[in-house]
Design a protein around this nucleic acid. Sequence first.
DNA 1: CGTCGATATATCGACCCGATATATCGTACG
DNA 2: CGTACGATATATCGGGTCGATATATCGACG
Lengths: 187, 187
Amino acid sequence: MTRRSEMLELAILGLLHDSPMHGYELRKQVHRVLGTVRAMSYGTLYPRLRLLVERGLIVEAGAPATTRRGRITYAVTSAGQERFQSLLTGAGPNAWEDDAFDVHFAFFARADRAVRLRILEGRRARLEERLAMFRANGPAEGVTMDGYAAELHRHSLESAERDVRWLTGLIETERSAGRRGVAQHEE
Amino acid sequence: MTRRSEMLELAILGLLHDSPMHGYELRKQVHRVLGTVRAMSYGTLYPRLRLLVERGLIVEAGAPATTRRGRITYAVTSAGQERFQSLLTGAGPNAWEDDAFDVHFAFFARADRAVRLRILEGRRARLEERLAMFRANGPAEGVTMDGYAAELHRHSLESAERDVRWLTGLIETERSAGRRGVAQHEE
DNA sequence: CGTCGATATATCGACCCGATATATCGTACG
DNA sequence: CGTACGATATATCGGGTCGATATATCGACG
């Protein structure tokens, strides 16, 4: 299991939990959550669905009468539910990376506050680490940069700083909700 | 040549033009331009360097006296320069995508204004297209979204909108510089 | 002079992407 | 009706990327 394939598995299991569907529809949903860029190709999705069936995490669940020819509807099994939970709540440093973070975040309603805080803080730490590295070889240092390279550097820095502020706000919300014993964002 | 490999080739040729270097240093520079996320692994870089040598776009150029054992310094050939220019200025829709756009932008000083404008406008159009798709299946529509999914959606939208404004500013600058016959950002 | 972390290249297996092939469904139009 | 067309839907393949690992040298420090 690579980082990427773990993330895709989490996305598939999480979306199928919301409601059973077939591959084509599933991919559209992944696009919705992840954006067009980081989403999954058919060449990845269909083989993976079969693999998940083999491993007993999902099953073909189409009611033959209502199912159009050529369509295969999938649903999560209880083993799949467990796998989803362990991927979501047992999230390690893999979940700090860009695309994996988004998928985890999208399913935050199904994780408790401790897990949410751990992922948010890990993500923020990762971004700050990257910011430090990025600032270290800015245009001020020995590195030569023309106007465009410097502008790109500035803009990237600004975007990352904005994301850090966003995360800080979310962390603060989780913490204050915890203090008051209120779950503000629950489903 | 896939989209990704074209982008990596552009990055390698462009960075080696600035100054000859060996693979390890080259990768650090790619990291600097692209950020840690979208950069290139060694398993991609080293085979590609050898391929570029085979194709005559770069040469091993280490002065044996000043070169540490085990180091191979590369420099662009004139064929490599031409390839760089054709990749940069002949940029098609591939250059509208996230990582490819960044690399092209980093080398803008070596493209003329017409090319820069074409890439900036293409990039903006791609982002706006994505924004439209993204807005279309927001939380308002039939799609059910809990608080976290909605928050992710909102934040992604905001980031993309910010990038569009950034591009619009850059386009305006290029246009007004053109009108006044001034090349503000030139090296 | 010995150890340790940074520098540097090379290679391999797992597996992801993008393109393509194939077929069916919905529907609009004469 | 029927037929043409775009959207829906699954399947597969080759090219190529990633991440891990192996190997070895350099520089600094005590």
